[in-house]
Design a binder for these strands. Structure first.
Lengths: 203, 203
DNA sequence: CCTACCGATCGGTAGG
DNA sequence: CCTACCGATCGGTAGG
């Protein structure tokens, strides 16, 4: 959406603009988390950020677009891309555990905003669609990773989409259920090794 | 909540009262699902059920109490009790698969009501508390079952609370994600056997 | 009916 | 020249 098609070294002006964009997003996150989407006015965000109301519309075409930008930047996708994007030869257990811990931590830290998002998604179809898109993208990233590990013979063949959904949804519920972070390691254990004894029982 | 402490053979009057109670709950479920909690009036429920408004208050002290009764009777707990309560020597895989399929089916069938409950839980702390209580009870039932299977040597030692949460939350997300029922069998596979090859990799 | 307030848009300007 | 930023103003609306 922004003109990132230039050479790497940004001018001071461009860097400043990026920081300003980020500042507006962070300010919006705080106010949205405190008051909800509808009760947070563009005016209030502008005041809290110390800028004119018009400037927000220079960066974002609408309040909804700003809300979506907050979702994109403060959701789990950036971190997931960071974890899976970097070339790695780390053991699967380590990677899945890092994903689980960081997702859990994110949910803890952004709890108030998360509540707002969830509530909004149940009422606002546009928000729901955006949230589903983000979830599908996160699942797709994980699926690509798992499929590669299967192809490499590190994991036995399975349905990676189901496993991706299991990992993310279980961490989510661990958070909702108020269980401690350490439980994510038990979770990863189950995903990796299951709960039956040394040998499979029926099948 | 109702006087079930008597002898087994109910009088015809008592049986009729039970049916009436059930009818009111079912009518309420339908209207709540269609219009939401707030927009559904006791008057409308009474009319739809063909009874006087006062009769509803004979069975339920408040609209909220009626809503909770719907949650109790149409939630997953009754089915879970039925599955796990009966004495069984069925393989774990079969039991977990039945739980997963029936939970998934319930979510599909009660989708409209489910949306109302979720939205209400985010707004109404009382509903949220009730929902958490129901979830904890379902998890507790599953935990008891898994712990018994561990004690019997059928399952290797693990953290049953985490597994219970994984199973239920994953089925829930399978439904939300619009994935077909058959995926619950992949899910049960992963819970039972994990995704690593014949032998555990690190650990 | 009125008015307070909303999100959105405007033209103007200063500085990189 | 470009664009980040400003103050002022718009039309629409919900609630008194």
């Amino acid at each position: 959406m922004n003109g990132d098609n230039k050479r790497n070294p940004l001018t001071q002006r461009e860097r400043h603009a990026q920081m300003r964009r980020r500042q507006l997003i962070d300010t919006a996150l705080r106010l949205f988390a405190e008051r909800g989407l509808e009760k947070t006015t563009i005016k209030a965000i502008a005041e809290a950020a110390g800028v004119a109301q018009g400037l927000i519309y220079h960066y974002f075409p609408s309040k909804e677009a700003l809300f979506f930008a907050v979702l994109d930047e403060h959701g789990f996708l950036p971190q997931l891309r960071e974890i899976l994007g970097a070339p790695h030869d780390r053991p699967v257990r380590e990677v899945l555990a890092e994903i689980a811990v960081r997702y859990y931590t994110l949910l803890r830290e952004k709890e108030a905003f998360l509540t707002v998002v969830m509530r909004e998604a149940l009422v606002n179809p546009g928000v729901q669609a955006r949230l589903e898109r983000l979830t599908r993208e996160a699942v797709a990233l994980l699926v690509r990773y798992l499929a590669a590990r299967i192809a490499a013979g590190e994991l036995r063949p399975h349905h990676p989409e189901v496993v991706a959904l299991m990992l993310l949804s279980s961490v989510f519920m661990l958070h909702i259920g108020g269980m401690p972070v350490e439980r994510v390691y038990d979770l990863v254990d189950v995903v990796l090794e299951g709960i039956v004894g040394q040998r499979a029982e029926t099948r």
